[in-house]
Amino acid sequence: MSELIRLENLVKIYDTGSLRVLGLDKINLTINRGEFVAIMGHSGSGKSTLMNILGCLDTPTLGKYYLDGVDVAGMSPNELSRIRNRKIGFVFQSFNLISRMTILKNVEVPLTYARVRPSERRKRALELLDLVGLSARVDHQPNELSGGQRQRVAIARALANDPPLILADEPTGNLDSQASIEIMELFARLHRDGATVVVVTHEENIAAYTHRIITFNDGRLIGDRINETPTEISEADAGLGRRMS
């Protein structure tokens, strides 16, 4: 298995003028392609800071971050935009769909910034919405859908440019337990089909779906263990999309 993420002595210091806060303290971490990883910790543990850096939304103060073999630690904001567009698929706690656009258009957004032609974009977005079982709803606005459905749109959007890394920040935080199961099973299937998925969560039962659990406390990496018995997912031989709709 090849390396997708490598952090070397990564340090993040927040300088608020009068106060300097150590956000991350010398983190060394490697995540390979095809892994399904949970990053756990309480609020203030540094997991959100790590998530921002892994997602190229923020840059480390010191140390190196290799994503897909490229050191992104010193990149400019616009270079980072490009990296996010091509290499990372984000799934957020509060979905962050654009409310006045149809879900089809929402899925097209990353493709637009990748300068994909409109006809191509539409085709790809339709495929992805089919994959997450929402092909019947392509012309709906996000507020016409349930939370679980919205998160599935967000996952389709995250997959748009076929990025090597799916980064989910508390993806079930705003969902009921049934929808949470659906979403985690969707991630598990994506993983089974070869995707690298990193989920940031503070919930044990969510982390239980993953195969590797990394724990943070006070800005330090305090635990990194293999989950020998990930939560079983229901069979989906009939195909991902159809079962979920």
Binding site: N78, S81, N96, I98, V109, Y113
Partner: peptide, 16 residues
């Protein structure tokens, strides 16, 4: 603001 943040996360550059 949220839309702007989302678009940036999804790859929009400052120019976009």
């Amino acid at each position: 603001t949220r839309e702007i943040g989302t678009r940036k996360a999804l790859g929009a550059t400052t120019r976009d």
